[in-house]
Design a protein around this nucleic acid. Structure first.
Lengths: 355, 355
DNA sequence: TCCATGGACTTGAACGATCCAATGATGCCC
DNA sequence: GGGCATCATTGGATCGTTCAAGTCCATGGA
């Protein structure tokens, strides 16, 4: 059985000191080329791998990123997090980091989890998902100078959302987000292009950042086409039954719309129960013929042929990692761009049979 | 700003030595009750948390469990892993462990990942999912005495699957699995009870452990009811289109079945396109009226009302953690049950509109 | 010649925990 | 009171790495 290979083993094999081996790994320019090659050779020959625990103890950095894994809420949206997680793990591996999971029931519990994780593992950074108005988590982390990125804009300050980093607010933190409004606008515009003039919207109750953004994408597109969105709008908590009820309500009052845009696939699926979808041979509901689009391009949409807005989750994850490594490297180098960076990605529309 | 709280800080505050503090944490029975209380008080007062890196360096154990996160293959089945992951993270936290993620494209890449992870982080254990015939991963890990549990039986040795640990084979490793055959049998039995006599099956091509198990559950149930399954069986790779094609084929040849049991929700969803489902007001396809059931109870099933077999994923995850902690504690204590343990969980049938 | 400069490398110390061997305190029996 | 066993507690060494300070040697200007 092979003995444990440490930096000392490598040093002896290459006839240099431990520190020189360390320099080859962490500051190659400090070592003469000839020596460097000899050390590198010894490293591969012995199969040496740096012990992260020892490195962490000395440097205080663990090369670990933490992400919360939520209990699959409604089932449909769980796959969004799943795909994001996969992208994150993959990108992090490329940058030499690993992803650690944790759970938390609510925001206070999550903050308690931060405390535990930081105390025990000295995590390098956090990735937060699903930010909302006045998120207490970001404040807690910022206060303690813990590096983090959010997937989702900070909704607490509406002015910041549109400014895109140039304002360089002191409290601004790096974030990556998908332009929800643009996604819904795209879906709405396509329906307009197909001749629809009365297009309804079913979204979450006013007050959530993401939800309001999606709704505004619909309203703004209608207005810029010279149409009045008034009365075509319904609010419903996420869920199949809620979506169905909202769709029925939309059809029952006033002149019914010819198309409905939904803020999520769950709502869209519910709405589908209340209508008939145009197109050959596919019509789950029994109501009037109405085009329906969803949001998130979940497996459900794919399965039943629902047109839906797709978020570029792998790219979003990659951007998160990039922003994080930026921050982490700046921390050590004391140099770099300085201002927190923001990334806004454009979603794409996946057109299927549902209209 | 508070200084870093180490074991020495606590020791000073409680007026004892470092070792005594360590004993309070790791071997409380060694310390007099009075002293123990004083140390505990100091720990909470200072908010001390053991530094895992330092502990790991000394003990060689990291309290870290690694799980692979797969790229969401077909989309539908991704949510199974997602729910399992959440359960695993939660259970692991309860046992004082953390979950770390990694990705790998195939088995060789995964083995390379093991090597990297073990070298850098000295992981305590792995959880493998989706085992198949003659899995090279388990052999690699067993050879190096790396503790691991599989979610899924080892299919390489058919004799082992039924023996349930009493055989105590030398190469046997702990595993947790869901009794796929029993799940399908349950679904089939219910259809029999409802009066169906010709019940078809659409499953994956013969050769995969899980797939064959599910198929056998269907065949055995029909036979024990005195019915002949011959000709009612179709093989198709997982996917909507494949499921649809298989269903059409099943309907086209010979006397058509009145119900179809599928090995996955993906296949079931495809099958639904080819048939009409009994029940009020819900009929996506246009074909004959036929009951359809799926497997995995994915969000899709929930969304469109597909009867499906549900795996107890949270319990499975909890069992994995339990088996692992068993193995890990045995490693240190050099005592315990000795024989690897196996757990076979019973899935449950979620009945919905689809029949 | 002398000392300053700087590059290439080495040495000792430290990070924070646990393990090991040794110490002090306590109780008990003769 | 001395001897002895038991138990709680102590101090030093250690895990593998990086940081800070040091050595050694060649170069070059005064």
């Amino acid at each position: 059985m092979a003995e444990k290979v440490t930096i000392a083993t490598v040093a002896k094999a290459a006839r240099v000191s431990r520190q020189t081996v360390s320099n080859v790994l962490n500051a190659p320019h400090m070592v003469r080329e000839e020596t460097r090659a000899r050390v590198r050779e010894a490293i591969t020959a012995l199969g040496y791998r740096a012990n992260q625990a020892a490195r962490q103890m000395r440097t205080g950095r663990s090369r670990l990123i933490a992400v919360r894994i939520e209990p699959t809420r409604d089932g449909v949206n769980g796959s969004v997090l799943d795909r994001f997680l996969h992208g994150l793990t993959e990108s992090a591996e490329g940058a030499g980091y690993r992803v650690m999971l944790y759970t938390a029931a609510d925001a206070p519990a999550e903050i308690e989890a931060y405390d535990q994780l930081l105390g025990a593992y000295e995590l390098d950074a956090f990735v937060l998902t699903g930010t909302d108005h006045g998120d207490p988590r970001t404040a807690w982390l910022a206060e303690r100078d813990v590096p983090f990125v959010t997937f989702g804009r900070p909704w607490s300050d509406p002015a910041e959302a549109g400014r895109d980093g140039r304002g360089a607010l002191p409290a601004g933190h790096p974030w990556v987000d998908v332009d929800n409004g643009a996604g819904v606008a795209q879906a709405t515009q396509r329906l307009l292009d197909n001749g629809h003039r009365r297009i309804g919207f079913i979204g979450w109750p006013v007050g959530s950042g993401v939800g309001d953004d999606r709704r505004s994408g619909w309203a703004r597109t209608l207005r810029s086409a010279g149409l009045d969105p008034t009365g075509l709008d319904r609010q419903a908590p996420d869920g199949f039954d809620q979506g169905e009820a909202a769709a029925r309500d939309l059809l029952a009052h006033g002149e019914p719309p010819t198309a409905i845009v939904c803020a999520s696939d769950s709502l869209a699926l519910g709405a589908l129960r209340a209508v008939r979808v145009p197109g050959p041979g596919w019509s789950p509901g029994a109501g009037p013929e109405i085009a329906v689009t969803g949001f998130d391009d979940t497996p459900v949409a794919q399965a039943i042929g629902l047109t839906s807005v797709s978020q570029p989750l792998a790219r979003a994850a990659a951007c998160c990692v990039e922003l994080l490594t930026d921050v982490l490297d700046r921390d050590t180098a004391r140099t770099g761009s300085g201002a927190p960076r923001h990334v806004l990605l454009r979603p794409s529309l996946v057109v299927r049979q549902s209209g």
